[in-house]
Design a protein around this nucleic acid. Sequence first.
DNA 1: TCATTGATTTCGAAACCCGATATCGGAATC
DNA 2: GATTCCGATATCGGGTTTCGAAATCAATGA
Lengths: 102, 102
Amino acid sequence: MEEKVLRKLFLGFIHIHVLHHAREHPIFGAWMVEELREHGYKISPGTLYPILHTMEHDGLLTREDRLVEGKIRKYYAATEKGTDILVEARKKAYELFKEIKD
Amino acid sequence: MEEKVLRKLFLGFIHIHVLHHAREHPIFGAWMVEELREHGYKISPGTLYPILHTMEHDGLLTREDRLVEGKIRKYYAATEKGTDILVEARKKAYELFKEIKD
DNA sequence: TCATTGATTTCGAAACCCGATATCGGAATC
DNA sequence: GATTCCGATATCGGGTTTCGAAATCAATGA
């Protein structure tokens, strides 16, 4: 119930988290799911993976397959455009925070 | 193009802005559209009004009709639950900002 | 070859977004 | 009281997105 309400608010936050981490170092889906969980965002693979695909399609991320410990992982890194979007998002997030902070 | 990408990120922000303002004082749709525009969020009535309806349905806002200058306006104010959600959102927004700030 | 394992993908039903357009209801004019 | 005006709100349908459960994948080890 309440979960649905919150999810709507935080889906954008999740996107921004993804961009942020993908800029620091390449990420892969399962790792990102866990990272988000630690931040208090529950998200299932069936939701996150399509997000990654869309962000790649939109030119925000690039994908590179790697073989790690016998498993194929699809690593995503932020593109220049993705970084631009992140900068924009950071600005907006700051304004939002400043406005609602008390 | 780019607009669509950004909108996805910021739709949650818009919800939070709405809650924030509705807690400060009752708001009505057309005013909120203008307020958001000043914050750099372009949103059409066809998007915002359903958001208000949904938030009312979810128990985040209450509605009250008022007659102002010969026009009916539907004023929305944040409920206790809405305020709780806002507090939660503020916490998450702060964490997000802290994490990506540089 | 077959089971295992971590990671990714698919699936269909439900919900949602969008903005152009239509509608509302009170006020003003005649 | 009919008509027009106007700010504000509601509707529409087509396209997209969301969800988690379940299926799939690819490489390794038994």
